[in-house]
Write a protein that binds this DNA or RNA. Sequence first.
DNA 1: TATTATTATCGTAATATTGCAATATTATAA
DNA 2: TTATAATATTGCAATATTACGATAATAATA
Lengths: 107, 107
Amino acid sequence: MGASKTEIHTQFHLEIAEIAKVLSHPARIAILEYISKQKDCICGDIVDEIGLSQPTISQHLQVIRNAGLLKGNFEGKRLCYCLDADRFKEIQELLTQFFKTTSAQCC
Amino acid sequence: MGASKTEIHTQFHLEIAEIAKVLSHPARIAILEYISKQKDCICGDIVDEIGLSQPTISQHLQVIRNAGLLKGNFEGKRLCYCLDADRFKEIQELLTQFFKTTSAQCC
DNA sequence: TATTATTATCGTAATATTGCAATATTATAA
DNA sequence: TTATAATATTGCAATATTACGATAATAATA
């Protein structure tokens, strides 16, 4: 099949999995880390930095954007892509919550 | 292509992505949470709990096992599947480290 | 040893992901 | 407005993932 059976899972489990999927590719990890470090970040820089084609980077950016993690500010002349700090913190807290819920006890 | 270009990424980024991939399916999240709660956990229980076929659960378990998260104890008569607490903590720390490294500052 | 229960593996179909070339869109500069 | 630069979209090929039926392997019990 290839498609996961979403209907049998809880909202919490689906949400955690969706977040994790965003983080499940090294290019996206690299992009997130890079964007977070820049004051003024443009997509072209990312292409140079990471070593994938511009369309591929653009595609990864869309995945990150769909997760609500991207904020684009048109400050003055250029488009500035930044992490949405609030959403980023939210995601961090959801994962923390999962790790809290799931603490190994047996054996 | 479908295969990611591993050679262009750092070990850290690859490691984070690999961990996230394990967490990127709701069934595996559910399995991890369930296993962590049981004292004596057998695969069959998981099948009843989650609502996927036994082979599918077994496949998900292998992904979890490959990440070093499963510990199988043959205690007395039955096989007891448990979370590897050390590895679980390790994974948690790696993600925490990523979130620390990647803290939104710009905009 | 034969039976039964539990878990793993194989084979396969459906769908998703990754990556890039070509092209379109958008925004700035001339 | 036209040229130029930056980013997004489209289309497509290669590979990966998800799911399950059928079957094999393994372990406990009669």
